[in-house]
Structures are given as C-alpha cells and as structure tokens.
Design a protein around this nucleic acid. Structure first.
Lengths: 250, 250
DNA sequence: CTGTCCTAGAGGCTAAGCCACCAGTCCTAT
DNA sequence: ATAGGACTGGTGGCTTAGCCTCTAGGACAG
C-alpha cells in the first residue's frame, strides 16, 4: 500500500499525535474565534456553511464540532436559526476538558482515589478475620502469578475487590462495582509495564499490613501510594491532564 | 408520520421538545443497546455502517452520536478499529440500587467523604473563575437564606454542586449525581438542628477560601471537617457505626 | 396597528464515495 | 524455522452534493 512509503511531505514525523480528529480541531478554532471576537452569551456563531467555507472543511465536520460544543453545554444549535452561545467557553479550558475526556482514564484514576482510599480506611477499621483471609488469598494468588511471569491482573483485581468488601460499605461497594470494568482497562495497562507487577504486589502488601493492624491512616496512605503507580501509567498513554495526585499528606 | 402537526394543545409554549435532534435519539438508542447487551468496558460497538443500516439512518448521524458519546467519555472511537466502550453509562439499574439504600444514612455519609473530599481537592486545583463565581453565588444564596431564618438547604445544595462542577471530573460528577437524591435527605436533617445552618455556612466559607487560593490539602481538610458536622447528625439517628472520621491528616 | 403570508437563509439529514488506519495473514527472504 | 514485509478486509474519517424542515422577519392586506 502506498501508505508505508514516505508521503510527499518529507519530515512529517513531526506529527507525534495520530492527528487529532477534525472536529476537535474545529472546536478549538471555534472557541478561539469566540474569544477573539469577544462573543457573549446569546450571540450567534456564523452559519455552518460559512464556517465550513472559511475553515475549508465540510459542513458535516463543522456540524460534528457543534455537536461537541452542544453536548458540553457551550452552544445551543437551533434548527432554522443558528448556533447560539450559552456560556463563554473560558478559553483553553474547554478544549482541555474535551481532550481529557476523550480518554476517560484520568477520571477513572480520580474516582479510584476517591473511593479506594476511603475504602482502605474503612477496611482498616472494620475488617473481620474473614476479610483478612480473602485479602491474604488474593495476595497469594497474585504472588504466584507474578512469580510465574504473569501480569497478575486477576490477583490484582481480587485484592482490590477484597479490600472493597472489607470496607463494609454497601454503597461504596456498589459504586466500585459500577466502575470496575473501566478500572480493568487501567489495570491491564499498568501491569503490562516491566517491573510493575512486582511493585504493585509490594504496594498491596503494605496496604494489607495496615489493614491487618487496624491503622486507617496508614492504610489510606499506602493506598494513595499504590494508586500513584497506576496513575503514572494512565497519564503516560493518556493525554497530559493536570496531575491528579499531589503532595498528599503533606 | 403525522409528526409535526402540533396537536390540539393550545398552550404549546409548553412544548419542551421541538422534536429531538436525531443524534440525541441515537445516543439514547445506543446507551439502551449497551445496557441491553450488557456490554462491558473494552468491548466494541457495532460498526458505524452496520448501526446506520439497522437504525435506518445515515452514517453521518451515527457519527454525530458517537461524537456526543465520545465527548462524554462513554466511548473511545478509534480510527480503523472501532468504537470501544470506556465505561458503561451509569444505568438505571444502579439508580434502583441506590434508591433501595436511601435510608442507609451512614453509608451515604461515607460515600460523601470519599467523593466530596476528592472533589474539593480537585476543585482547588482546577477551579476557573467561572467556578468560583458559582461557588460565591451559592454562598451568598445560603447566607441570605440563613439570615432569614431558613435552613438554607437550597444554598447548601448549590454550594456542593458548584464544588462538584469545579472539580472538573465528569465521572465523579456523574456518581455524585447518582447519590444526590439520597444526600438531600441527610442535608435536610442536618440543617434542621439549631445553629446548624450557621455552622454549615462557616464550613462552606472555609472550603471556598481554600479552593479560591488553590490549596488542595486545605480544601480537603475543610471538606472533611464540614462533613463531620453532617455525620454527627446521621450517627445520632442512625445506628452508631464506627466513626468514619478519625485523626485526618495526622 | 394587526394579522397573514411569503421567503431567504439557517440547520437537519441523507447518499455515495474515497482515503487513512489497524490488525491479522500470508508470503518471502534470511 | 523464523523474522520481517506486503497484502487484505474491515473500520472510521471526511468530503461533496443535494434536498428537506424550520425560524425569523419583512411585505402586504385588512
């Protein structure tokens, strides 16, 4: 296929990103335009046809961009009338939001911080011997997998699930269950990095120790440290969102 | 069909739906489909062409719907690969679960700790001027209500909602939205206690200050303190569960 | 002044087509 | 055998062309 040979453009390797979707570029241009023109809420954007012509893209693409802005609540597109600005988009904010939403991984990490740190606390306070047994079992499982060269995501999942159960909070557990499938994706990605399964296992041990000794503060701290590991991965392949973890427990 | 002929209804100014945009209908059908088929994160939606055919719409419309889903972080559309589900749209099933748990006040408090503390952190890091304006507006609203002898739950709700928005985490916001009805109950109960609205307002001011000055650690601490207020109430009338807050930030 | 009608121009949506990309396969050269 | 490159089928990305529907506002009648 003609693709593999270097295209007309000589050094187009300057394109690190697989090229952003057109509608996202257009969203950016539109928000720029709004700012540049100083448009306020209630004012109208130029007609689609006009935008398409001046940006040299098809109407369909402009329309997609408007859908994106509409979903974000920035404009209201009115049939037969035009696209009315609802809120000023606050500059780079919008496009940053859109970009970070394209991959929700950063948000998933944030949710894990919120939920699992709390669950670790609760687990330290409430774990029964039975809970501890489940946690230990998960640790053993992952240890076996890791020493066998496996990524050990099954053990990883079992561990987090055991901690969640040990927290004895039905509501939090339900919420965790809801985002669990999404977490799985980050899990696999994280554990695919060299040396990561071992590091993750260490983190688990620290968390388990804290839970065993009934120390909620330490359990929360250990969980944060553990999640920092995961978030690094996610941010690696995801887009550069604002760092979600900072100097915890200063 | 005879669709557009507006029926006998005289006061059609009530017309909330000037007929929904096609892509919105498709978004609905797609989320239904996801739920019905029990699709989990990582799985793929049918190809655009197939969807277009089976829904009897053009590919362009399907594409718009996918843009909407992508902007919302539900799906990741990968060129040459397909549309991959990132996380299930929080479904009705969860809502049902939550509803049945409505009276589990201690659990609701725990969930609020988990979510809102993190959201306060994020808000301190990410708040825009617009976010701050919303927060201040909520503060003002509650101040007025309280000084008028009202419990001020509307202002309270507005405040927490503004903080949630300022966190700029769609997923966490979604989860908050899910448990919001349950929270309302605790809110009213808490604010019904003498002197409580004033104390709550003070808490809000502290949180707002931290968010304004961009101090995530302080924002989290202030939020914890504030929630401690609420949890006292809940524990009063609920079962005396283990204290969920302890020596934070040791 | 008031109400009706008309129409320009805006978005909504479709159809058909070509291009770019990904992953698996098969085939070749080492 | 096996590593590496080309092929291929399927998927999304985007365009062009065109017709339909809706809204707002002006012209015109009453």
């Amino acid at each position: 296929m003609a693709s593999s040979e270097t295209p007309p453009d000589v050094y187009d390797s300057l394109r690190p990103v697989p090229r952003q979707r057109l509608y996202l570029q257009l969203v950016e241009k539109l928000t720029d335009f709004i700012e540049r023109e100083g448009l306020r809420a209630g004012q109208r954007l130029p007609p689609e046809r006009e935008l398409a012509a001046s940006l040299s893209v098809s109407r369909a693409s402009v329309s997609q961009a408007l859908v994106a802005l509409e979903v974000q609540g920035i404009v209201d597109v009115r049939h037969g009338d035009g696209a009315v600005l609802l809120h000023e988009p606050l500059g780079v904010q919008v496009i940053a939001t859109l970009r970070s939403r394209r991959s929700r991984l950063p948000e998933i990490i944030e949710a894990r911080y919120a939920l699992e740190v709390k669950l670790a606390e609760l687990a330290a306070l409430r774990r029964t011997d039975d809970d501890l047994a489940r946690i230990d079992h998960a640790l053993a499982l992952m240890a076996v997998q890791v020493s066998a060269g496996d990524r050990g995501e099954a053990g990883d999942e079992a561990f987090h699930s055991a901690v969640t159960a040990a927290g004895h909070s039905g509501l939090l557990a339900d919420i965790m269950g809801e985002i669990a499938p999404a977490i799985l994706e980050t899990r696999i990605e994280s554990l695919s990095q060299p040396g990561r399964p071992e590091a993750s296992l260490d983190g688990h041990l620290a968390i388990a120790d804290a839970i065993r000794s009934g120390d909620p503060v330490e359990a929360a701290r250990a969980m944060r440290v553990h999640l920092d590991l995961v978030s690094d991965v996610a941010l690696l392949r995801g887009d550069q969102d604002i760092r979600t973890h900072f100097d915890h427990q200063s």
